[in-house]
Simulated scan of single mutants.
Amino acid sequence: MAPFSLCFRPFVMQLLLLVFVVLSTGLCAGDPPLTLDYYESACPTVFEIVKKEMECAVLSDPRNAALVVRLHFHDCFVQGCDGSVLLEDTITLTGEKKASPNIHSLKGFRIVDRIKNKLESECPGIVSCADLLTIAARDAVILVGGPYWDVPLGRKDSITASPELAEANLPTANEGLSTIISKFLYQGLSVTDMVALSGAHTIGMARCENVREGIYSGEFEATSGINPLSESHLNNLRSTCPPVGGVGNNNVTAMDYATPEIFDNSFYRLLLKGEGLLNSDQEMYSSLFGIETGEIVKKYAADPVAFFEQFSESMVKLGNITNDESFENGEVRKNCRFVNT
């Protein structure tokens, strides 16, 4: 028993250090100065406007729901939920869109533009892009069958961006479980939050570059006896993702092939069968270090209500990640792509 515990001391010390770093910075997933009625007087129609635009976007293509949720996640993991992910490069500012975790995976910016234009027409200079994105992510989930949660509001838009933090903070598809856990802990999010928020992949798409190795390694073939997929589904994956490196890298395939356009707990049931397309997802159940995460995966696979309840709670925590800088020096952008002049 002693050698086992000794092996984990460096990992435990790493986690304690991360907690110290979180407490030492402005980042927090605690109780920022946000309220449910923030726009009650200044823009009472904010929820109606965002909902109507999201309904149009998801009706035109259900995949738009996942795009908006991903934008919100990638925003909050860098400088807190401050709309920095929406900023374009300018002469004086380098945005986050070209950072490696973002450059090929983030879309949906035009949806945000349409919502912002409507809000500026109705309530000019009132609703921040950061708040807009937080509401839109909630509505996106609801529109494809997911749960409702109240959205605290009052965020300001950052006048800065950080491609460096995007590179460092955002989890990637091929990272190990301990690394991903540490990135969530850095944001003040627990292991339970990590597993629950990963459930958004039930409506997500994966790029071929991130899944090709598994498709052609034999791990998904029926004869492997490890993580078999049906022959027809495996053939579909291979037709979407050719074997030659670089060819079709940006093609996408559903992470939850069973119900790709419905927000449900099917994603976790696939993990139990070893059918998680992303290594980072499958490790939550299959990793030797995933004792805690594996139990949570089993719980959500068996109990969709438990998943929905925790996902709602974890999304509020995600949306509450803020930093003092955005509140002290932030603004309400007129155009979500550019700092006000």
Rank of each mutant, 00 (worst) to 15 (best):
M1N: 14
F4M: 07
S5D: 15
S5M: 07
P10M: 07
V19P: 00
V21D: 07
V22I: 05
L23W: 09
D31T: 15
L34Q: 01
A42E: 12
I49A: 05
I49K: 00
K51W: 05
E53Q: 15
E53S: 13
P62M: 04
R63T: 13
V68C: 07
V68T: 11
R70F: 10
V78Q: 06
G80N: 10
G80I: 14
L87G: 08
L87P: 14
E88P: 07
G95L: 11
G95E: 07
A99H: 04
N102C: 09
I103Y: 00
G108W: 00
I115C: 03
I115T: 06
K118T: 08
L119H: 03
C129N: 14
L133Y: 01
A136G: 14
R138W: 00
G145A: 08
G146Y: 04
G146L: 06
G146K: 01
P147W: 09
D150R: 13
V151K: 05
A166H: 11
E167D: 12
P171R: 03
P171Q: 04
G176Y: 06
L177S: 10
T179K: 06
T179V: 14
T179C: 00
F184Y: 14
T192H: 04
L197W: 01
L197Y: 00
H201W: 02
T202S: 12
A206C: 12
R207Q: 11
C208M: 05
R212N: 05
E213N: 10
G214K: 04
G218M: 04
E221Y: 01
A222R: 09
T223Y: 08
G225R: 03
I226T: 03
G248V: 07
A258Q: 06
E261D: 11
S266L: 01
Y268I: 07
Y268A: 03
Y268E: 02
R269Y: 00
L270I: 10
L270V: 05
L272D: 04
K273D: 08
G274Y: 02
G276V: 15
L277C: 09
D281E: 08
S287K: 06
I296G: 04
P304W: 11
Q310N: 13
E313D: 13
S314V: 13
L318D: 09
N323V: 12
N323G: 05
D324N: 10
S326F: 07
E328P: 02
N329V: 13
V332T: 14
C336Y: 01
R337V: 05
N340V: 04
N340H: 01
